[in-house]
């Protein structure tokens, strides 16, 4: 048998296995029950338009807030970790270990309920504000490590060239190192952004009025009210509608930035 023929047969077998697996799932599923429990048009219609105008909007808003806050704090922490002053490094290390080690849910709970009781500290925006602050703190811990690696990934010659032109250390960091580090950290930060989109669902523990429900909380309440799981399917589709275009967009951005390298 010729080599190409053998390869073609092997590929054909792989396709057949895949088709068989799909067929098995489709045949094994009880479509009537699936339709009744997960794909009810009436229930779906009842969720609209609030599941988009309130819940999806809030998910995006909360993600943007916690990502932006986390990014700023993450850059500060990364610079602290690279500082020549030892106490700054210790502080950054302790912070990162603490907030990476704790479950985000616990941190949200602590910020929303423990902090006000223990220290009489009230974050603006009520418990949801406190929950968002917690997400910022957690996101910063994760991003700090990626940003530090990005800064260290910029060749030393770049700093030397900038300093030899008379730029100060701060100016060099701002104009030369950080813009280049940013390109290195786009993939890990995209990852962090997608994780945050999903972590906003943990904000339910900070308590939610109708106006600040995000997708998961909204869908869960929809399930309880309608006694049907269709809202969960809608929630899943909404998350994918947000995350997939976003990751595609970043891939395009990355390719475009790559051209100037």
């Amino acid at each position: 048998m010729r080599r190409t023929t053998r390869r073609r047969i092997r590929r054909g077998v792989l396709y057949l296995v895949f088709a068989a697996a799909v067929a098995a799932v489709v045949l094994a599923a009880d479509w009537d029950r699936i339709r009744a429990n997960f794909l009810q048009p009436d229930v779906a219609r009842a969720q609209l338009p609030e599941i988009i105008t309130i819940a999806a909007k809030n998910t995006i808003l909360f993600t943007v807030i916690s990502f932006s806050g986390g990014l700023v704090l993450g850059i500060v922490l990364a610079l602290m970790k690279l500082s020549t002053v030892a106490p700054y490094r210790w502080l950054a290390i302790a912070y990162i270990e603490l907030f990476r080690g704790l479950p985000a849910l616990l941190t949200i709970f602590a910020m929303a309920y423990v902090l006000p009781i223990a220290f009489q500290v009230h974050v603006p925006g009520g418990t949801i504000g406190a929950g968002l602050l917690a997400l910022i703190l957690v996101a910063a811990a994760y991003m700090a490590e990626s940003i530090r690696a990005g800064i260290q990934g910029v060749p030393k010659g770049q700093t030397e060239a900038a300093r030899s032109l008379g730029m100060s250390a701060g100016r060099t960091m701002l104009s030369i190192v950080l813009p280049q580090a940013f390109r290195i950290v786009i993939p890990p930060l995209t990852n962090e952004f997608v994780l945050l989109i999903k972590d906003t669902s943990l904000l339910f523990i900070a308590g939610s009025t109708l106006q600040n429900k995000e997708i998961t909380t909204f869908a869960r309440d929809g399930v309880i009210n309608s006694n049907n799981s269709t809202p969960l399917v809608m929630a899943a589709m909404l998350y994918l509608l947000i995350t997939i275009p976003l990751t595609r967009l970043v891939a395009v951005l990355e390719r475009r930035l790559g051209r100037s390298r």
Binding site: Q158, E160, A161, A162, R163, G166, I176
Partner: peptide
């Protein structure tokens, strides 16, 4: 440093 120009083996242009 602003009065001393420096040229490196690896060019070190800002990419």
């Amino acid at each position: 440093r602003a009065r001393i120009g420096m040229v490196f083996q690896q060019f070190n242009l800002f990419p």
